[in-house]
Amino acid sequence: MAVAEGGDERRIRADEPTGVLHPANLSRYDARWIDPDPRVADVVDQYWAVRWSLDDGEMIDQAIIDLPAINLTIEAGDVPAGLLVTGLHERAWFRRITGTGDVFAIRLRPAGLAVLSSLRPEDLVNQTIPITAELDAGLHELMTRAAGERTAESRSRAVNDAIADRMRQNPPQASHLLANRVLDELRARAYNRTSTPLAERFGISERTIQRALSQTLGIGPKQVARRIRLQEAAQAIAIQDDDRLTELAVQLGYSDQAHLTSDFRATTGTTPGAYRRILRQLTASAEHR
């Protein structure tokens, strides 16, 4: 068996984009990133792990604006199921945290799902589904194998090797690797309004880009860019001490503050101003806990 590389571990900071709408909660979860092996970089974007132990009767309804990515998780404790796949959500989604538990997760690159599974992205939209042998025997075998390891670090090594094996048997398709590159480009240009059009940047047609993202994520480039902008907006609102929403809207490519406010409310159910007030209340409560 090949020796796995990667595996560097670091805590997830509250001031970095994660999609967690109340980032101060990250300190409650013992949340960590674990870097994937470079061998699986075309399939895995990031491993992450969380562990929590809340007081009796305590409950956190955690809201999340995730990146355009599909997540596979191994879970234990007070959780919905032991093995889960979470698809893209059209709006912010919620996870209720109670009791104790731990999660090891694989955030896939766009090309990843087709390498590991027969599931299609459109099968998973707005859903978190238990991974069973009946749902997908190959994916269930891979996840069960990793779940047999006792720590997040050993799970990451097991998954690295298992995915590297799958990639040799079922390499990523060229169009799916294009989707990886397009997503990287959209993430890199979140604050750049004057970027070269994607079709020109990659020297291909808009239709080719649309098809690559649709095959791997189930959505097109406009929806991908919107999701990235909203995650960046939520993060900026959470860490900034002032109310520079007009400036933020311009930086993220919105026509004006009203457009940002409307988009944020449609996705999260609250306005940026109300979200900031909630964050301040949570911070004050945590300081007095």
Rank of each mutant, 00 (worst) to 15 (best):
D263A: 13
R193F: 12
L248M: 10
N25Y: 14
T73S: 12
L260I: 06
N160A: 07
R28E: 13
R95Q: 13
E16I: 03
V50P: 02
I65T: 03
D61P: 12
G87M: 07
G253D: 00
V44I: 04
G220P: 10
E149R: 04
P171T: 09
G203L: 02
R155G: 04
R280D: 11
V79S: 02
L108N: 10
E5A: 15
I64E: 11
G138K: 07
Q235V: 04
L183G: 06
D102S: 15
S156V: 11
E149Y: 10
A225V: 09
Q235D: 04
A179R: 02
V115E: 09
N180T: 00
L54W: 08
A49R: 00
A63Q: 11
Q240Y: 07
Y47M: 02
D56A: 14
I239C: 02
A236M: 10
V182C: 05
A284S: 11
R10C: 13
A233Y: 02
T270M: 01
E141I: 15
D61H: 13
A174Y: 08
A146S: 04
I209T: 01
L230Q: 07
A31Y: 08
A188E: 08
G19N: 02
T246Y: 06
A162Q: 05
Y275V: 08
G82F: 09
G253Y: 10
E232N: 15
R28N: 12
D35E: 14
A236D: 04
L245R: 11
I209F: 05
A49W: 05
L83M: 10
Q210I: 12
D30Y: 06
E75W: 05
V79Q: 10
V159E: 05
P197Y: 04
A152D: 02
N192D: 15
L21I: 06
W52F: 03
P197W: 06
L252C: 00
Q223L: 13
R150A: 13
R51D: 12
A179P: 09
P17W: 03
E122T: 14
V224K: 08
V50T: 08
R181C: 10
A4L: 11
A14V: 09
F202I: 06
D165Q: 14
R145E: 02
P17M: 01
S53R: 15
H89P: 01
Q257K: 13
R11T: 11
T271D: 01
R187Q: 12
R95F: 02
N180E: 03
L119H: 06
R211K: 14
V40Q: 00
R10M: 12
F94S: 07
I163P: 05
R95V: 11
V79P: 00
G7C: 05
D165Y: 12
M167D: 10
T132Y: 07
A266I: 06
E247R: 15
R229K: 11
V159I: 13
Q235M: 09
R193Y: 12
I204C: 03
P221C: 01
A190D: 01
L279G: 01
P36Y: 10
L21N: 00
Q231I: 06
L213G: 04
A81M: 05
G82N: 10
T86D: 09
V20L: 03
L183Y: 03
T86G: 09
D161N: 14
L217D: 05
L113F: 05
R265Y: 09
R91T: 03
R11F: 11
A162S: 11
P197F: 00
